[in-house]
């Protein structure tokens, strides 16, 4: 069994982000990077499936981790190898300008990843539900479409299903609104987008990092970008809107002031 996990490298949650002068992307020069959190859960699910496949007598499963981006994404791929992935595929894109990630839309990135997946012929493709930076939630489902695979989204857990031909079908638990979950059976091969929090992530270990150095990291060249169908118009930091003003005076005065504000400034009365 082979599982491909597509991961994205995103700015760390604590990173201080600055918007570029053109106002359409963020300045990447001083940013610390990390693995997109839902992708980390996708990787964890893949690693646990690998273990469960071995326990269920389905043979040795291989976990291949895949990412598209410039040189820097190799640190995230290494982290995945350290946590237990068997090998890595890196679709190399330029740091900036023509063909860089910033210039490519979700569709284009999904194309890059789908192309790499095709070469592997995996039974299962996992990726995060969405990215922590752009949050479009498109890449996974578009990839499924491009690969002609059935897919399920918002998946928390995966198990092997079906009798006899164990492993030909999987049963997944999907998260619905308000604490509801749904179980769906999906035939393999399939693509799943994974929701955060379904598993407990593992910590990186020294042995993992040292072993990762000997694992294969194959670089693939990226296809030239296609015409974007969407366009980023503006990126802006969240505006701070919370303001507190203390009204003073006697109770009657305060009440009068409050009514005035609510009527003319907030316009809710």
């Amino acid at each position: 069994m082979k599982i491909v996990v597509a991961v994205k490298q995103v700015p760390e949650r604590e990173a201080v982000l600055r918007v570029t002068p053109d106002g359409r992307s963020i300045d990447e020069s001083d940013v610390a990077w990390t693995m997109n959190e839902p992708d980390a859960y996708a990787l964890e699910e893949a690693l646990q499936l690998k273990q469960r496949a071995a326990e269920a007598g389905l043979g040795e499963a291989e976990v291949v981790v895949l990412s598209a981006g410039p040189e820097r994404v190799q640190s995230t791929l290494r982290e995945a190898l350290a946590k237990g992935a068997d090998r890595a595929l890196h679709v190399v894109t330029p740091e900036s300008g023509e063909g860089s990630l910033a210039e490519r839309g979700s569709l284009d990135v999904a194309r890059l990843l789908a192309e790499a997946v095709k070469g592997e012929q995996p039974e299962l493709v996992l990726t995060g539900l969405q990215s922590d930076d752009l949050g479009a939630g498109q890449t996974g489902v578009v990839m499924a479409e491009l690969l002609g695979l059935p897919h399920a989204t918002l998946v928390l857990q995966v198990e092997f299903a079906g009798q006899g031909g164990v492993g030909r079908r999987i049963k997944v638990r999907r998260e619905l609104e308000d604490g509801w979950t749904q179980f769906v059976e999906v035939p393999l091969p399939a693509l799943l987008t994974i929701q955060s929090g379904g598993n407990r992530l593992r910590y990186a270990t020294l042995m993992g990092i040292k072993r990762a150095r000997q694992k294969e990291m194959r670089e693939l060249s990226a296809a030239t970008p296609t015409q974007r169908v969407d366009e980023v118009v503006k990126v802006s930091p969240p505006l701070r809107l919370k303001q507190t003003e203390m009204l003073t005076g006697a109770a009657e005065e305060i009440a009068a002031k409050l009514v005035e504000r609510l009527r003319f400034e907030v316009k809710v009365l």
Binding site: E12, R13, T34, R200, L201, R202, Y203, A204, M207
Partner: peptide, 23 residues
């Protein structure tokens, strides 16, 4: 135990992930 990943502990893992991600 920790450098080889043999130690599995809910709280320990949470601490390590906090240190990895939040510093």
């Amino acid at each position: 135990a920790v450098n080889t990943g043999a130690w599995e502990d809910r709280y320990g893992t949470k601490l390590f992930l906090s240190l990895e991600r939040q510093g």
